[in-house]
Write a protein that binds this DNA or RNA. Structure first.
Lengths: 344, 344
DNA sequence: TTGAAAGCGGTACCAA
DNA sequence: TTGGTACCGCTTTCAA
């Protein structure tokens, strides 16, 4: 590391002790205004930046929080979530250490250990598996906040999204438009997020006396293809419903793509709803009707909870569930005349 | 911060001084094997993690590097780049502090200051503007590595991608297939990346005696729409070429979308090449032919350069230019018979 | 083979 | 109003 000026350096230049300099820079009441001004000027000139590691060491504080995710980009929601967390943390003078686990439990634990060693006050982890014992072991007494759908809602600190409600909202919207034959398209492998969506969907459909159809196709690694395959399968069986709710926006785009390739109009013939609202412009000639997860609120809540656990913020509930919201754009409309009925 | 065990804690449990414990844990030659084993066992049991901040303070080292980007996600290349940087850093026991500037110079500088205060050894910055004076001011003596197309290639430490070569590769591929009427689609606002692509394209076309056509449309914030608008404009003027090179993959998807909406086949009627290769599966029913920026190499190089500047690695060239590579998938083919000629 | 002392940069306490 | 001293957790040096 390059030689930055320290309190001592400034003190020498000012003919003062490092203690006086420290006080002057922090506007202590027992330093004369003249001295303060002089010291501040010198510090400014020398480009002084306090060494937070040293300060934290003495004060037994933290000025960083950690975050571990499976991967950034790759059409996941972690990018937007990180943006919010970064902003909220910077607002409070904290910085964020981030690690990509590349979906490896070993790397996940390794990131946690490195960050704990580097004195993060708390960790926000979107684990790549539902089993998080290795993470807890790696973090020891450092508090961990779990985020993301794979997590057990009974963890001590956890921020989740209510995907059951997603199902309710999707069905409510589509049924409200007059659809009665609605299918949910999901993908493998089974996880808590998918299960919740299926549950919410089934419950909402049955509540309306409608038959819930759930089609599982493809794999999480390529949900766009999964959407196409699901639609192809439905078409091949002559079982196309009038509305589709897809478990992810990407899947929805794949579904729309496949429908249009077969000369079907969206939303003219078939309505499609997505999930996540990762890219408002994803389907630019119309805009995808979708369910928005409240990333900004989740990010802010994660930082608040982290600071609260560090003891740098007020009390915050240790478990929070966020509610998705419906965003109506151009891929949903009433069903074609005469097709609103429930199939056999 | 929760009370983690320290060397002193372990020493008390082991009936030794903290010095002996420190040595034992680091396998110093002057500690007996028996003591080492005993100490290590106790440390293990207590879940000891060395306080790297304290170690760094004494050793005047850094164990973290910083990275500042305009935003994660949002269809930028920073996600994949971060993944690589994270992996390379973790490999070497370093962690990465990341900040999203939300395209604000103030926040950009703020992140830099916070990270410098937190003792990062070096910073990797993808600036949101070409002017980087505020960043340099915020970082002081801490070395900064600039990445991304907006940067002046004369900066002291800089990693770039040769977008002129992208133009050459795109033209070479399309001309090799028999295309003579090729247009480049770009978007505003003008920046160094775009300028380089245009330059490389023009040069390559003229080298083959072909007329370079460049269409600028839309805005960087929604390049998918820009791609659609560009195609609509070309169709309206009856000036559609047989091949399009789009400045981004997203723009290419928009272009393909618009072409197909008009009943044109890709690559049957028109070939389309993208740029970046952010999502191999972006256009699932074919796969987009595109130019791939070598993210993995750039990430690795960034970390190596950072460590070299910290004095923790070997010598590394301070400026590096990476070469994009052509990835041929399903959106390029020879032009339709009789349409390979150069237009008036 | 072990440990006392000093120092990294900062802050708190108390004496001058 | 100022500064000496001690301490945060760790490592290095040197004496026991």
């Amino acid at each position: 590391m390059p030689n930055r000026p320290t309190l001592k350096t400034i003190g020498q230049a000012a003919g003062l002790s490092h203690v006086a300099v420290s006080k002057a820079l922090r506007d202590a009441p027992d330093i004369s205004a003249a001295t303060k001004e002089r010291v501040k000027k010198i510090a400014e000139e020398m480009g002084y930046t306090p060494n937070l590691a040293a300060r934290n060491l003495y004060l037994q504080q933290a000025s960083a929080i950690g975050m571990v995710v499976p991967a950034m980009g790759e059409n996941t929601a972690y990018g937007p979530l990180f943006n919010e967390i970064s902003a909220a943390a910077a607002e409070l003078g904290f910085c964020v250490m981030l690690g990509s686990s590349h979906r490896s439990k070993e790397l996940e634990a390794r990131h946690c250990r490195i960050m704990v060693g580097n004195q993060v006050g708390a960790l926000i982890v979107a684990s790549c598996t539902s089993d998080v014992s290795h993470i807890k072991a790696a973090c020891g007494p450092t508090p961990v906040i779990f985020v993301g759908g794979k997590t057990d809602p009974e963890e001590e600190h956890v921020l989740l999204c209510d995907y059951r409600r997603s199902g309710a909202l999707a069905v409510e919207h589509l049924a409200g438009l007059g659809h009665r034959d609605i299918a949910l398209l999901t993908y493998g492998p089974e996880n808590r997020t998918i299960a919740q969506k299926e549950e919410g969907f089934t419950q909402a459909m049955e509540g309306l006396g409608l038959r819930p159809r759930i089609i599982r196709a493809g794999h999480a690694s390529d949900t766009m293809r999964a959407g196409m395959e699901a639609v192809e399968g439905l078409l091949a069986r002559g079982a196309l419903p009038t509305a589709l709710w897809c478990a992810s926006d990407y899947m929805a785009v794949g579904a729309v793509n496949a429908l249009r390739a077969h000369g079907l109009s969206v939303p003219g013939h078939v309505s499609v709803v997505g999930h996540d609202d990762l890219w408002p412009g994803l389907w630019p000639d119309a805009g995808l009707t979708t369910l928005r997860t409240p990333m900004a609120e989740m990010g802010k809540a994660a930082v608040e909870l982290a600071l609260s656990l560090i003891g740098q913020g007020g009390q915050v509930p240790p478990r929070q569930v966020f509610r998705p919201a419906l965003v109506v754009r151009g891929t949903t409309a009433p069903p074609p005349p005469g097709q609103g009925g429930q199939p056999g």
